[in-house]
């Protein structure tokens, strides 16, 4: 067997294993990425699945536990609102009126049980004015 054929065989193995691993990884980790309105338009289809939902934290809805291990808030869409209970570390800059992305599972009754909140890096590349004008009234307590 020539060196070229052996090399081609090795490359086929590397490509094959990598493709298989990518398939397994995608199968176990994919989730729908929807807006609040899309999420509530067809809740039955998404219930029980992992979803990633984008929207704004509604004014007056944010409650953060004293130990910052849980946050509850309403995720505001264009015409609908989704209740969110998020367990896990709450980002320092989570505020009302800011756009966030919540990862979690959609429970029956239109409740999103989140385990991760992605917040935007406030002043990087865009004005912080919108964010700073709406500081949370339920921010964390000082130690």
């Amino acid at each position: 067997m020539s060196p070229g054929v052996k090399l081609a065989g090795g490359l086929v193995v590397v490509v094959g294993v990598t493709t298989y691993m990518a398939y397994v990884g995608a199968s176990s980790s994919w989730q729908y990425y929807v807006t609040v309105d899309e999420c509530l338009a067809e809740p039955a289809k998404l219930e029980g699945n992992r979803v990633r939902v984008s929207g704004g934290v509604a004014a007056g809805s944010l409650q953060i536990a004293a130990d910052r291990s849980r946050a509850t808030f309403c995720l505001q869409g264009r015409s609908a609102r989704l209740n969110v209970v998020c367990d896990g570390a709450v980002p320092d800059n989570l505020k009302e009126n800011m756009d966030v992305v919540v990862e979690g599972r959609l429970a029956p009754g239109g409740l999103l049980r989140g385990d991760k909140v992605l917040t935007r890096c406030a002043s990087k590349y865009e004005s912080a004015a919108a964010d700073s004008s709406s500081a949370s009234s339920t921010g964390k307590k000082s130690p």
């Binding site: 990598t18 691993m21 990518a22 990884g25 176990s28 980790s29 994919w30 989730q31 899309e38």
Partner: peptide, 28 residues
């Protein structure tokens, strides 16, 4: 780019999680 690519075969955008990348990082 999974959000954009997935719209070719799904009615809703799909994102993949860290397991997708980590699984590939192991053999490569």
């Amino acid at each position: 780019c999974s959000t954009a690519l997935s719209t070719l075969f799904s009615d809703k955008p799909i994102v993949v999680g860290p397991a997708f990348y980590n699984n590939v990082l192991i053999p490569t």
